[in-house]
């Protein structure tokens, strides 16, 4: 336990494998070369958007297991989640793998929650290895939260584009095997040294087309809590990386933290901004969804840690808490953010 809400792991779990599966648009983006699988078929060989997302997630899990060199039976627990109602993409996706599992939901912050929880299981000695996975699919999310895809409407400039993608990571108690099949010799191993589970923060924003503004206060709250609990300054991290605040949310979170006495401007990145080229890809404020932070972490961020470009990062996926019902009933959209501390050794 650290401070008021953080955890410092006694035996920091090692990330022994990571895999990312994305759709075509993400593959064409600036991070395209970092992803393991890019599917041109948005249906992933399935028959519906929900089925497509399940297949995508299964593919990511299988890829991660393959890259780790472990057999499926060695994965003691799976911690996963997605955006669809009642987590059907996750449950239907991992069903055939028959790994004991926990379903978690934190909207687009789910990757932080699942990776953090998997690390807790491993650090606590309750599992030798645990797998964390999340996914989102543009079409499934549009259908559930907004409009049918063929419906004509204009997207506001603050709106984000839900990433079609699934990222999976395996954490392990032992360092042996911490280099997966992609790691080159001389590269670093990466471990999870701590986490700060977030609180729900509601600043009364009701505009679900401006998720960045809904989530930025939560990101600010969690980042500030992390820095406070560990008694460090922002420069403790090479990068502080939020999930899917987009351009609007980025401006807000930097301003809010600055006012609280933390200047993160020179080290802040946002997965939603990294994943698309907004000029070419017309994605407005950036990418969003559980898959956004998951594939950016599994593909791009880990690679930067492995190559030693960054030594230590704070990964803070952010989630906007709403359902079509809560929105129709006029509720505001609170945010939540979970921070996970990663270190290259």
């Amino acid at each position: 336990m650290m401070g008021t809400q953080s955890i410092a792991f006694r035996n920091p779990p090692w990330i022994i494998s990571a895999a990312s599966v994305v759709g075509q648009k993400e593959g064409e983006g600036p991070l395209g070369s970092y992803f393991d699988v890019i599917s041109e078929d948005p249906m992933f060989g399935g028959t519906s958007w929900e089925d497509a997302e399940s297949r995508m997630m299964k593919l990511a899990v299988e890829q991660a297991i393959n890259k780790s060199g472990l057999s499926k039976e060695k994965i003691r627990y799976l911690v996963g989640g997605d955006l669809l109602g009642q987590l059907i993409a996750t449950f239907f996706g991992v069903e055939a793998l028959s790994i004991p599992m926990f379903g978690v939901y934190g909207a687009c912050s789910t990757m932080g929650e699942s990776l953090g929880f998997a690390s807790v299981l491993v650090d606590g000695g309750y599992a030798d290895t645990a797998l964390a996975v999340t996914s989102s699919h543009f079409a499934g999310a549009e259908k559930q939260f907004r409009f049918p895809l063929a419906y004509g409407n204009q997207r506001p400039l603050a709106a984000t584009w839900t990433v079609t993608g699934s990222g999976a990571l395996i954490v392990s108690r032992t360092r042996a095997g911490a280099k997966d099949s992609e790691t080159k010799s001389g590269e670093h191993d990466v471990r999870v040294i701590g986490m700060t589970p977030g609180r729900i923060v509601d600043y009364g924003v009701k505009d679900s087309m401006n998720m960045g503004a809904c989530m930025a206060p939560a990101a600010c709250d969690t980042i500030a809590a992390n820095l406070r609990d560990f008694g460090v300054k922002p420069d403790y991290y090479d990068k502080i990386i939020t999930g899917d605040l987009g351009y609007v949310g980025q401006e807000i979170v930097i301003a809010l933290l600055k006012e609280k006495g933390y200047d993160i401007k020179d080290r802040h990145l946002d997965c939603g901004i990294l994943i698309y080229d907004r000029e070419v890809q017309d994605t407005h404020s950036g990418g969003s969804g559980c898959g956004c932070s998951a594939v950016t972490l599994a593909g791009y961020l880990l690679r930067q840690l492995r190559t030693g470009k960054w030594k230590r990062i704070l990964f803070v996926p952010t989630g906007a808490l709403l359902s079509p019902v809560s929105f129709n009933e006029g509720n505001p959209v609170p945010g939540i953010a979970h921070a996970v501390m990663l270190e290259a050794v």
Partner: peptide, 29 residues
């Protein structure tokens, strides 16, 4: 505006200030 948001005395005032601030930073068509 950011100062006002963080120094607001109660939730209602903070939420109102924050929404005003968000309006400022949100790009419009």
């Amino acid at each position: 505006q950011v100062k006002e948001v963080l120094s607001a005395k109660n939730k209602t005032e903070r939420d109102q200030k924050y929404n005003e601030y968000v309006k400022q930073v949100t790009p419009k068509h």
